[in-house]
Design a protein around this nucleic acid. Structure first.
Lengths: 213, 213
DNA sequence: ATGCTGATCGGGATAAATCCTGGGCGCATG
DNA sequence: CATGCGCCCAGGATTTATCCCGATCAGCAT
């Protein structure tokens, strides 16, 4: 019986150590490395080709998603599990979209983590109970016109990026070399689609909505 | 040699379990309970009077700080260690201010956590190396006019709260029953103090700056 | 071809935010 | 008591944002 080789990626040393400790004391697993830097994680994954990667996705802006994509390129056989404290299904979706096989929140139990690793190692996908429950709730709820994040255009998302940085419409127009009027229309459409009424609400919405980076 | 009794408070089950596992396997410690609800934590602390509480402060808005204050009331002898993924010294200050004896980031090592528990149990204060380094760096840096978060008044912070929720100046004026002009002055002063130029930048600044709630 | 959508741009209007000026009131500290 | 500071308010100016009304054009699918 071969052990499942594991690489742990998390920017917090304490977390890495605790997981190494816990998983290392289980005969079925073998933690072959842990690192706090996404770039380093990609290197290690390329060299050691671990069976499973535990990827924390609270790391600085979206690097968890990027790292997942990179690792799948350099080591396609490696299964990746996203581990996060966020309970929004949007994170899970994004994670699977970039090539991960599993997603577990930090609300899950240790048993569930173990189960996730074993399942993913077999090539199956695994989403933790919490997220699955939320998703099925959302399905039954039949949302009465929630904000249409999906309907946002590429251009609109790009504009959102500038707004988030604190740029004014005039500045954005200059940077994209388009008319001020166009930027204003984009902003108006964004607010309408997301059912928000001003910039403050928008910025807040963005910051709690990972799908928009 | 009496064991140090420990209560673990963290809203993430996985984190609670891993710490229980690790600390429980050390003869010097005894994890007597763990809970994910701040209110429950206060109850348990009142009953069992643990020697040390590990308090995660990523829990929903400021509940970690509140819970710390409450626990110090119902069990003054209990030492509390704030545990967080945030490396800003502002958190640590706030934590000690509400009665904690220690602060450890999740970048710290397991040894450091053990040391923190032992020190705090003896009645000493303990701040992890990372934060101490940052503080001493800031002292030597002689900040060339960074944003004056400290200089914000209570009223201004209150106004910030409303802005963050997406309320307009007119709405804020109505809710606080003061003049629109006054709110505008407050907003202007806030931007000036924080050296920001518009609402978008402000909201973003807030969201990456926990010291303002 | 016809229709749809995204992106572009404009006029014109209103509301909101930003930026000045200045003043008054209460309270604490020196 | 004088000074500073927080908080309040006002007038007036400018910029920015929000919201209508349009319009053209390109691409793409039925």
């Amino acid at each position: 019986m071969k052990k499942v080789s594991i690489l742990i990626v998390d920017d917090h040393k304490l977390i890495r150590e605790t997981w190494s400790f816990i998983l290392g004391s289980d005969d079925r697993f073998e933690v072959i490395a842990d690192c706090g830097d996404p770039d380093e994680a990609i290197k290690v994954a390329a060299e050691k080709k671990p069976n499973v990667v535990l990827m924390d996705i609270n790391m600085i802006p979206m690097s968890g998603f990027d790292a997942t994509e990179q690792i799948k390129k350099v080591s396609p056989e490696t299964r990746i599990i996203g581990v996060s404290m966020h309970s929004q299904p949007a994170y899970a979706r994004k994670m699977l979209q970039v090539g991960a096989h599993g997603y577990v929140t930090k609300n899950s139990s240790r048993e569930e983590m173990v189960k996730a690793i074993l399942e993913v190692d077999k090539g199956n996908k695994y989403i933790c109970d919490e997220i699955r429950n939320i998703i099925s709730e959302q399905l039954t709820e039949a949302e009465p016109q929630g904000p249409d994040i999906q309907s946002l255009t590429d251009r609109e998302i790009q504009i959102i990026g500038f707004i988030k940085k604190g740029h004014s419409s005039r500045e954005i127009a200059a940077e994209l070399d388009i008319s001020l009027k166009t930027v204003e229309v984009h902003r108006h459409n964004i607010l309408k689609k997301l059912k928000l009424k001003n910039t403050a609400a928008l910025v807040n919405f963005i910051n709690s909505n990972p799908s928009l980076y």
